[in-house]
Amino acid sequence: MSTTDIYIARHGETKYNREGKMQGRGIDAPLNKTGRLQARAISDELKDKSIDHIFSSSLVRSMETAEIVAWTFRMKYHSYPELDEMNFGKFEGRASKDIEQELNEVHRTWQNGNTDYAIDGGGESPVMVLERVNSRMNNILNNHSGSTLLFVLHGRLIRIVLSHWLGYPLSDMHRIEHSNGALYHFLKNDNSLEMGYLHKTDHLEGIMDEEG
């Protein structure tokens, strides 16, 4: 029985994260200084893990994080648009505090079980995101069975994917914590998926909070 070692990292911080603005698939922002430090901290944390392959979304913040880690392992990373963050439609680029009531209504809709609901303006539903992400990730996992893999992903997407992996309904995805630079670990055997840890952040301690 082969075991696949799966690490998942949330990308480092961007200006949008710092300013509390919605940053989904429609916003392609680079890392700021803190984000680059977080990416290096991910590298340091994983440097002894013998990573075989690194995968990211096609968004700059994810690719920049993956590139910093890939440099440590002297390897290339592979990016896929199917791993991109959820599209938040009309909320993209807006400050969360300015749309708090509308956001709360969306979250209540999802928590009440309507995970087919998508935000107006070209947004995606949790079900839509899971379908596109799960297809690509299953393909990667099947093609690299027995390897040690790192996925550099996004906050809402991590909530969606890990809820599915842990057997939660998507209406409970808020149970999954996420923050910039956090790590998650799973072990996959032929017929089982075992959680190692969720939302590991101790490697980020001591990082100076820098803008720019």
Rank of each mutant, 00 (worst) to 15 (best):
E67L: 09
M86R: 14
M22P: 01
A29V: 02
N134E: 07
Y77H: 14
I207D: 09
M1T: 13
K49P: 12
E13Y: 02
H185S: 08
V129F: 05
M173H: 03
S96Y: 15
R36N: 01
G123D: 05
L103Y: 10
R18A: 13
D190F: 06
L204A: 01
L103S: 06
H78I: 14
G24N: 02
V60W: 00
D44A: 12
I99P: 13
T115L: 07
P126T: 03
H154M: 07
H11Q: 10
A29T: 07
E85Y: 12
I176M: 11
M195R: 10
N191L: 08
W165C: 13
I176Y: 10
T14Y: 04
S135M: 06
S171I: 14
K49E: 07
M75R: 07
N87H: 11
K47F: 14
M173L: 10
L37C: 08
D202L: 11
L166D: 07
R40P: 01
L150P: 02
I99Q: 15
V161M: 14
W71Y: 15
H185G: 02
D209K: 14
E194K: 15
W71T: 14
S145K: 13
M22D: 12
A95P: 07
M208L: 15
G89R: 00
G123Y: 10
E211D: 08
H185V: 07
L141T: 00
D84E: 15
L166E: 13
Y168K: 13
V69K: 09
A41Y: 09
P30F: 05
V127C: 06
V106N: 07
D5K: 13
M86D: 11
D52S: 15
K90L: 01
V106W: 11
I119R: 07
W110F: 01
S135V: 09
G146F: 00
H11M: 10
N142L: 01
L149H: 07
G35Q: 00
N143I: 07
K90E: 04
G146T: 00
K200S: 12
G196F: 12
